[in-house]
C-alpha cells in the first residue's frame, strides 16, 4: 500500500477526481456549521482510495461534493476534467448519470423492483432499452455471484446480497468514478469483507477511480491509498 500526500499528487499528475480547497457550511446564523474547511483531495484511475476519519469530520460531505450531489461554498471540483461547480443542475445530473456510480450505506434499492431491474436503472435512465439493460445487469449479477437471486426483490435478499446488487447498479453504465459511502457499515464482518473484495476485484480497473468512505479498519489493507480527514480537511 502506498500512501501519497494528496496535495503533492494533485499537482503532479492528472487525476480523475480533484477537489481543491473545498469549503462547505450548513445552517445559518448561530447554527451555521463549517463542515469542510478547505479540503483538498484527489483520486486516480485504477486506484481504490479510502477516505477515513472520525464521525463528523466531513467525509460524507466531501464525497457528496466530489460526486456532484452538493455544491461547495468555495473551491473547485473537477471530475474527468469537467469542473462540476460550473455545470447547471440538469447538465450535472446528466454528467453523474454518465460518469459516476454510487454505492450507498443503506443500499437504497427500489423495494418493488427485482435485483436485475434495480441494477438496470442507470442504463435505462440513459435511454437504453430495458431488454438490453437487463441482459447487462444479469451478466453483472453473475460476475458478483448472485445471478440466482436476479428475480428477487430487495426484501428477499440478505444485506450482503443487496449491497452486491447496489454495486451492480453502480457499475452497469461503466462509470469513470465509483463513490461508495460506508459500503460495509450495514453488513456483518464476513459479508463486508466479501463485498470489499468484490469491489476491489470488479470495480478497480484502468480508467476508473474508486473512492470509498469507511470507518472499517479491517478493510484498510485493500486500499491503494488512504486519505485521512479531520475537522473538515484532508490531513494526508
Amino acid at each position: 500500500m502506498e500512501i501519497r500526500d494528496s496535495k503533492q499528487v494533485l499537482k503532479a499528475a492528472p487525476s480523475i477526481v480533484a477537489c481543491e480547497c473545498i469549503e462547505k457550511s450548513f445552517g445559518k446564523g448561530q447554527t451555521r456549521t463549517r463542515v469542510l474547511r478547505g479540503a483538498t483531495f484527489a483520486a486516480w484511475e485504477g486506484e481504490l482510495t479510502y477516505i477515513v476519519g472520525p464521525s463528523g469530520c466531513g467525509k460524507t460531505t466531501l464525497i457528496s461534493v466530489a460526486g456532484g450531489l452538493l455544491t461547495p461554498d468555495k473551491g473547485i471540483v473537477s471530475v474527468c476534467g469537467t469542473e462540476l461547480t460550473r455545470l447547471p443542475s440538469q447538465k450535472l445530473a446528466d454528467f453523474r448519470l454518465k460518469n459516476i456510480g454510487f454505492v450507498f450505506q443503506q443500499f437504497n434499492l427500489l423495494p418493488s423492483l427485482s435485483a436485475v431491474e434495480n441494477a438496470a436503472i442507470p442504463l435505462v435512465a440513459q435511454g437504453e432499452s430495458y431488454g438490453k439493460a437487463a441482459r447487462r445487469a444479469r451478466s453483472l449479477l453473475n460476475d458478483l455471484g448472485i445471478e440466482s437471486e436476479a428475480t428477487k426483490r430487495p426484501s428477499q435478499l440478505s444485506g450482503g446480497q443487496q449491497q452486491r446488487v447496489a454495486i451492480a447498479r453502480a457499475l452497469i453504465h461503466n462509470p469513470r468514478v465509483l463513490i461508495c459511502d460506508e459500503p460495509t457499515a450495514s453488513l456483518d464482518a464476513s459479508s463486508g469483507k466479501v463485498v470489499m473484495e468484490l469491489l476491489r476485484e470488479k470495480a478497480v480497473e484502468p480508467g476508473r477511480a474508486v473512492v470509498v468512505v469507511t470507518h472499517d479498519d479491517r478493510i484498510f489493507p485493500l486500499a491503494d491509498r488512504i486519505a485521512e480527514m479531520a475537522d473538515g480537511i484532508v490531513k494526508n
Binding site: A93, D94, R96, L97, K98, N108, I121, P122
Partner: peptide, 18 residues
C-alpha cells in the same frame, strides 16, 4: 415513503423532467 428511492434516482442522474 419513496423519497429516499427517488433521491437515489436523482443522485444516479435521473433528471427532474424524467
Amino acid at each position: 415513503e419513496n423519497l429516499r428511492q427517488f433521491a437515489s434516482l436523482k443522485a444516479i442522474g435521473v433528471r427532474n423532467s424524467r
